[in-house]
Design a protein around this nucleic acid. Structure first.
Lengths: 342, 342
DNA sequence: TTGAAAGCGATACCAA
DNA sequence: TTGGTATCGCTTTCAA
């Protein structure tokens, strides 16, 4: 039975050095390919590394060297919403290409969860943080400012970010959708979404939407499904509630595509024709829309690209390259065929 | 300008202690709520913690205490596939409830990417690892065995896991689908999937499927879209290729629901009626299916639950609670209405 | 080209 | 109830 070399029972750098008959420092230099050692030494050290199956302890490296770590904290509201799953995929693919790792935080859209996660993740000395949304609790903001690491706020376009930001202008995207529906000849328009207890991207979209509709002589009737997630089923019963409480609704705009699909299902199940009897518009343009028989009227955003750009901003900043701190990646309207087009 | 207290420019425990006029140890005890200090001391230390905005450095804690970190490495093939996004959501929700963080690794279904990620993530001294799939490279297996930390392999039911495992028997799920289609009276059946260069869950499903179909007197015609992801569009053109190269196909089974939706779109675009002219079956039962007019014949798996159970196994093991090391969470067939039912 | 010693920020252990 | 000292694994710094 081999004697326990240390508490952790893992192979350490000193062990490798001892076996190779060199000092820790020499072994360390070889492993970092720093130069300043003979080829013979290098070969010897690497041989022992292989033999012993040595894996460096990056915790110690970061700790000792006052370098920042290679991991980046990434907060995302939820993954049940495909949109955010794609954003995360874009972020992680780009980060990992450059040797970084994502430490995930699912905030479930609450500032308190975000704050708690920020506190925890900061204690692990991350290289940087990527956060969804522009709103944070006061204590979170204080911690973020003190952390002294790069921060990218994504999703909402944000002209005065904590540090850097990439996203779209949600107000404008809602406005454009509102104007489009007005142009299509609708005036009595419904909105179905989830509760917006805090200011967030969806509520900005709704604000923009209302402004356009009301400015165009229309009326918006809102139906918020309190305390529910923005998925199919709330779209279904939110529509039921909306149509029960209001008559004469000609068209419904939903917080996102998933809710819109749920709503469309309710309408067709009740014998209404889309778009003849009622118009349906979503937001986000889920990939599946492209292969359904009737394309959903929606707003397209390149989620994967958004994630990649956010990660790239982080990487550039970490490499001290110049970075444009604020970026708007835009959106475009998908006319689809679920609203009638005059 | 305040003098730089240390290299990192962050507030350290010694600083808090100095300000409070106590020793590091006392401050440490207060912060860990270990007991063994007066209320007066506690209040004083906590006051300074607040004033200085002290955040502990968990790196140092792990390092000093020879505890493992609260990180759990989680490898997932991709997030573009909703199924895996849901699994990850289940994992992270459960882990974070118990104070753990997920360090993400997207392997894009390649063993090499998984191996590289394992090497990196192990260097962060994670508390444990959750890996998708039962197949790993030889070097990966060696590292995993040496790591001496809990490992949960998910997705494939695996009666002899490296450590623990939770998933379903993919062969059986394919078999059940094959038998069902035979029972529905189909004999000339197509399969559309992506390339299965390595053994994986999808190829197990196909094996089971073929066994059932051929055992039932049917024939399976395979169409693999090489080197593509299992999403809508490959489903679309894979179907085109299949139907062009073979006549008389009565029903098509797809690697997953996304491909099935793509295939169904191709069929209806070509004027075929589903299920009158051709049957369509998917796998995975995407949430959206439940709200489409015509429910897709598919196989249901509780992805979120799978993730939660995997995380719970990890947590139990980390708390030294007894754990059943292997778990089969099962599946059930959704008859749907995209295959004709005799 | 190589090595010895100090130190990163916390905790364990022992002493007071 | 409190504090001093050694220590974790590695890198930085300085000396040889």
């Amino acid at each position: 039975m081999r004697e326990k070399p240390n508490k952790t029972n893992k192979v350490s750098l000193s062990e490798v050095a001892r076996e190779a008959g060199v000092s820790k420092m020499t072994a360390s230099r070889v492993l970092r390919e720093e130069g300043g050692y003979s080829e013979k030494t290098r070969a010897l050290v690497m041989q022992k590394v292989d033999e012993l199956g040595y894996l460096p302890n990056r915790l110690a490296t970061v700790f000792a060297g006052d370098q920042s770590s290679t991991f980046v904290g990434v907060s995302i509201p939820e993954l049940g919403n495909e949109v955010f799953a794609q954003v995360l995929e874009g972020i992680d693919r780009q980060l990992s290409t450059f040797g970084h790792q994502s430490v995930l935080g699912l905030t479930q859209h609450t500032l308190k969860d975000e704050e708690d996660w920020i506190r925890t993740v900061l204690s692990w000395q991350p290289a940087g943080l990527i956060l969804t949304g522009r709103y944070h609790s006061p204590r979170a903001i204080e911690m973020l400012k003190n952390a002294g690491i790069p921060i990218v706020e994504i999703w909402d376009y944000n002209s005065s970010p904590l540090d850097m930001s990439v996203g779209i202008n949600h107000f404008d995207s809602g406005f454009d959708m509102g104007r489009y529906l007005i142009e299509c000849g609708y005036t009595r328009i419904g909105y179905v979404g989830t509760s917006h207890d805090a200011a967030n991207a969806a509520s900005s979209r709704l604000d923009g939407f209302c402004k356009a509709v009301e400015g165009g002589g229309g009326l918006v009737q809102k139906q918020l499904c309190l305390h529910d997630t923005a998925t199919f089923y709330p779209g279904f019963y939110g529509t039921e509630q909306l149509l029960a409480s209001q008559s004469g609704i000609e068209c419904i705009f939903y917080q996102n595509d998933a809710m819109a699909f749920g709503g469309m299902q309710y309408c067709t199940a009740k014998g209404m024709q889309v778009p003849e009897d009622i118009g349906i518009a979503g937001w986000g343009d889920l990939p599946i829309s492209a292969v359904l028989k009737r394309r959903l009227t929606s707003m397209h955003v390149s989620h994967l690209k958004l994630g990649k750009i956010a990660a790239q901003m982080m990487i550039s900043r970490l490499s001290d390259e110049p970075v444009e701190p604020v970026k708007d990646i835009g959106f475009h309207l998908i006319p689809g065929s679920t609203v009638r087009n005059l």
